[in-house]
Amino acid sequence: MTSPLPSPLPSPLPLLASDLDRTLIYSAAALALTMPDAEAPRLLCVETYEHKPLSFMTEEAAGLLTGLADHALLVPTTTRTREQYGRIRLPGPPPRYAVCANGGHILVDGEADADWHARVRRTLTECVPLAEVRAHLRSTAHPDWLLKERTAEDLFAYLVVDRALLPDTWLKELADWAGQRGWGVSLQGRKIYAVPHALTKSAAVAEVARRTDAPYTYAAGDALLDADLLLAADRGWRPGHGELADSGWDAPHVRALTERGVLAGERILREARGALRAGS
């Protein structure tokens, strides 16, 4: 059994900004349960979609997350839209703050901060418009592997694709084209994201840290869209899977974990707990 943390740290609390999908929570396809069935961890469903279970974490991770509530300010930091984030029910008290749409929205007690969103909108004049990027995606994606084409909160675009049929050359060509126009590209599972460089998780988390006077910030993430978040943190963790692991990305203050799948989410929370113990 996990021993309890010391008495809660005095306010203000440190901030734990974590990506969600494939970092803290996992779809059935991303669980990576490679152990014998009898040794698999018990799972807790934290999201349903169209009346079906969609995302999970281990019960041990759920206990760790609940135990952190009095010792750190959890800020879910996701590329999900506000609607998609609203389906998630993490264990423990509801987070006071959340970052959605890759930094496009800060939620405060579940409500979007209009001033922050307006500030973000002003920064997006530095890149080509979303409509131009979307038109390029539509004209170059092949129907053999394109499953869906979507925009998120009128901020960025993404495709859902058949990974087995997706040509590697197409993704590289898209990244080159987008980079010259102030946009970045990220491949996460079956989704290809095209996101403005000016739209970052780190900027939104820095604003939350400013408002809460957080003395330091921890962060976790697995994708290229999490790199700026990890670099801006005082300490961070990345799983043994995902774009960052596949590319060999690292930083001196970011620990590269070996665990993959849902056990990586559990390990991240255990590492955060250890950091809080040391910091206290």
Results as ranks from 00 to 15, higher is better:
His51Ile: 07
Arg211Leu: 15
Glu132Asp: 14
Thr34Phe: 00
Val46Ser: 05
His142Gly: 01
Leu229Lys: 08
Leu90Asp: 12
Asp154Tyr: 08
Pro239Lys: 13
Leu165Pro: 04
Pro76Val: 08
Leu166Gly: 02
Ala219Gly: 06
Gln180Arg: 13
Phe56Trp: 15
Leu244Lys: 03
Asp176Leu: 13
Pro239His: 07
Glu149His: 14
Arg181Phe: 03
Pro93Trp: 01
Glu50Asn: 15
Leu155Ile: 12
Leu146Met: 08
Tyr193Gln: 01
Leu187Asp: 09
Ala101Asn: 12
Pro252Val: 11
Glu47Val: 09
Leu43Ala: 03
Thr217Val: 15
Gly242Tyr: 10
Glu83Thr: 14
Thr125Phe: 07
Ala135Asp: 15
Pro95Leu: 01
Cys100Ser: 09
Asp70Phe: 01
Arg273Gln: 11
Gly67His: 07
Leu263Gln: 09
Leu229Phe: 10
Ala152Leu: 12
Ala62His: 02
Gly184Gln: 15
Thr78Ser: 07
Ser3Lys: 09
Arg80Thr: 05
Arg80Leu: 15
Ala40Tyr: 02
Gly103Leu: 02
Gly274Tyr: 00
Gln84Gly: 06
Leu64Asp: 09
Asp109Gln: 04
Trp177Met: 04
Gly261Cys: 03
Lys172Asn: 13
Arg273Pro: 08
Glu243Ile: 06
Gly221Pro: 11
Leu68Ala: 05
Gly63Glu: 09
His117Val: 10
Glu149Gln: 13
Asp115Glu: 15
Gln180Leu: 14
Gly179Gln: 02
Gly221Val: 06
Asp154His: 13
Leu199Lys: 04
Arg87Phe: 13
Leu13Arg: 12
Lys191Trp: 08
Asp19Val: 08
Lys191Asn: 15
Val161Asp: 08
Ala256Lys: 14
Ile25Phe: 01
Cys45Gly: 06
Leu15Lys: 05
Thr125Leu: 05
Glu271Gly: 07
Arg96Tyr: 05
Val161Ile: 14
Ala175Phe: 00
Pro95Thr: 09
Tyr218Glu: 04
Gly86Lys: 03
Pro4Asp: 03
Ser18Pro: 10
Arg22Ile: 00
Ser11Tyr: 10
Val133Gln: 07
Gln84Arg: 11
Val161Phe: 03
Pro94Val: 00
Trp170Thr: 05
Met1Trp: 11
Val185Gly: 07
Arg277Gly: 01
Ala175Lys: 06
Ala141Trp: 13
Trp145Phe: 10
Gln84Ser: 14
Asp37Val: 11
Ala152Tyr: 11
Ala141Cys: 11
Asp144Arg: 15
Arg138Trp: 14
Glu47Ser: 13
Glu266Cys: 04
Glu126Asn: 12
Trp116Asp: 03
Leu276Asp: 04
Met1Ser: 14
Trp170Lys: 09
Leu15Trp: 02
Glu173Ser: 15
Leu13Phe: 02
Thr79Pro: 12
Ala69Lys: 03
Pro8Arg: 10
Ala69Val: 00
Asp109Trp: 11
Trp145Arg: 06
Glu59Lys: 02
Thr169Val: 14
Arg211Asp: 11
Pro76Glu: 05
Gly236Arg: 08
Arg273Ser: 10
Leu124Pro: 09
Glu271Arg: 14
Ser11Cys: 10
Leu230Glu: 07
Ile192Ser: 02
Glu259Phe: 06
Glu126Gly: 11
Val128Ala: 12
Pro12Tyr: 03
Leu155Tyr: 10
Glu149Gly: 13
Ala61Ser: 10
